[in-house]
Amino acid sequence: MISIPESEAAAVVGVGETAALAEPRLWRRALRSLAHDPVALLSVLFILLLVVVALFAPWIAPHNPLEQFPNGLSDVGAPVAPGARFWLGTDQAGRDVLSRLIYGARVSLLVGVVATGLASAIGVVVGTVAGYAGGIVDSVLMRVTDTVLSFPILLFCIALIAVTGPSTRNVVLVIAFAYWTYLARVVRSQVLSLKEREFVNAARTLGVRHATIVRRHVLPHLWPTIIVYGTLGIATSILIEASLSFLGIGVPLPQASWGEMISEGQQYFQTAPWLLVAPGVALILTVLAFNLAGDWLTDLMDPAEREGGR
């Protein structure tokens, strides 16, 4: 119902302008908004913790994740419950669950970040080329994107892995190949509207080359989108990786991965629930943290995109 009319919009924008003058840096704004948003703060802290744990897994993990401890199994050969020696208990092979969880974080993050990075790269290139070139190039690229997009992602991954065989590299490739389409579409629509902005027209009118226009006037405006979709993409990739490992076609054994741990754990749920609960909670919290962080980034980046114009 209410919109600020033109004349006074300037006044209100003016308020923002003085703010922008005082702190032009995104970092400062991010810290400031985190201070007011405990949920986002927790998410970001959790992600940081996860990164630290994954990076320094060998130093943090209490045990070797692959070592089968003789005292890791009870007299009847059942997993040991959480206790002083094994904080989160052991699994059916007598391995330390906490250590496996920590090494599993490595796999999840590695797959999530690399797959998303790859997907973003493909998506940005395809989306930018399609949006900027338009015409037949756009039609062809978008038909390809639509085709890939119309595959059910998980089935698609299963099929591809079935062909390529399970390995961490293949998991990354397969996830990237499925996920780039989302970014391609979003980037394309952004490029389409950027292309109509007057500052792009002004550069064209000056006689600046297309490649330079894309590099200088189009790509820098895509960063907020890439960061937001990248964060959400990591969550999705981690989930897909877990699903693939759960199905036994993800990260190959005996390497620890959350999906594989959940898969194994469900068989012992009656007798050793920690086998399912520990990786399950880790997965849920991780995906939740990335999604919440993504939401927060969306809110944070949006005004940044508007700061110059309206």
């Binding site: 007057e198 027209n201 002004a202 550069a203 006037h217 820098p220 114009g309």
Partner: peptide
């Protein structure tokens, strides 16, 4: 151009 808010790249 007409719109002084759109004719300059906000990131330059």
């Amino acid at each position: 151009y007409q719109d002084p808010y759109d004719s300059l790249d906000p990131r330059m």
